[in-house]
């Protein structure tokens, strides 16, 4: 059973904490990230690079918005909806925010019940997360359709600065793509949990790594990141 040691090489001996811990971890001439499986460390590093991509999108949005002499469209009104005769500003975006936050909540609980080896609960929670994610993408498709029929294009719109359309489609499109990919992987992970791959340690079809419930946590990191990006888009694009 030596193969188990491959991903879990950390010594149970007490590791130093605080700044001493950072110095000793990074200078240990071994893996720098103790106590985390390499898959998790790699997911974090991927998310860091993704952070830079979204940062640059939001930065370019800030740059074009603050350098244009044409007034920026009022997002509060652009994204308003009439529900039951009541005019509600930005309501669809608010609902999308709550849906995505809820999916993060169910994801966090899925990770927990995965580590507790509750196969059925984990599967259900993962599928609920995927369902909420799909609902989010559906509402985004609705939003895009509405804006496109109203005449918003990447090169112009009826209300003001033409850069509004290009940044809107770029930022929300890239985020929606992330959500879609997340939903697909959530379903794959849910299926593996359901089959018991992570209980038996079945090798994955692509990496041929031994299956482990850490995969659920790594999936969770990606999913929470998608929610995290939405927090920034919601604040900086829709509310600003």
């Amino acid at each position: 059973m030596t193969h188990v040691a491959m991903t879990n090489t950390s010594d149970s001996a007490a590791l130093p904490q605080g700044l001493d811990g950072i110095v000793s971890d990074w200078s240990s001439d071994q893996r720098a990230f103790k106590n985390v499986p390499w898959g998790k460390a790699m997911m974090w590093i991927f998310l860091l690079s993704d952070t830079f991509i979204f940062s640059i999108f939001l930065l370019s949005y800030m740059t074009v918005r603050s350098s244009t002499t044409v007034p920026w469209p009022n997002s509060s009104e652009v994204f308003a909806l009439e529900i039951g005769g009541v005019h509600l500003p930005l309501i669809l975006i608010a609902i999308m925010t709550f849906v995505l936050i809820s999916s993060s909540g169910t994801m966090a609980m899925a990770v927990r019940s995965g580590y507790q080896r509750h196969r059925k609960t984990t599967t259900i929670l993962l599928l609920v997360t995927a369902l909420l994610g799909a609902a989010f993408v559906g509402m985004q498709a609705f939003e895009w359709t509405k804006l496109i029929t109203e005449g918003v294009r990447p090169w112009g719109n009826p209300w003001g600065a033409p850069q509004f359309g290009s940044t809107f489609f770029m930022i929300t499109g890239f985020h929606g793509t992330h959500v879609t990919i997340g939903v697909i992987f959530l379903i794959i992970v849910a299926r593996k949990v359901w089959r018991g791959d992570y209980d038996r340690g079945t090798a994955g079809f692509f990496t041929s790594r031994k299956g482990n419930y850490e995969s659920v946590e790594i999936m969770g990191l990606y999913w929470h990141f998608v929610d995290l990006v939405w927090v920034f888009i919601f604040a900086l694009f829709y509310l600003w």
Binding site: G21, D25, F33, V36, S104, E217, H224, V231, L236
Partner: peptide, 27 residues
């Protein structure tokens, strides 16, 4: 509100609050 939400997600949902500082600082 944005920073509070982001902080809660990263610290609790993504478990960063319980990771070793070597990882937290690197990310």
């Amino acid at each position: 509100f944005m920073m509070l939400k982001a902080g809660l997600i990263v610290a609790v949902f993504m478990h960063m609050a319980w990771e070793r500082l070597a990882l937290s600082y690197a990310i």
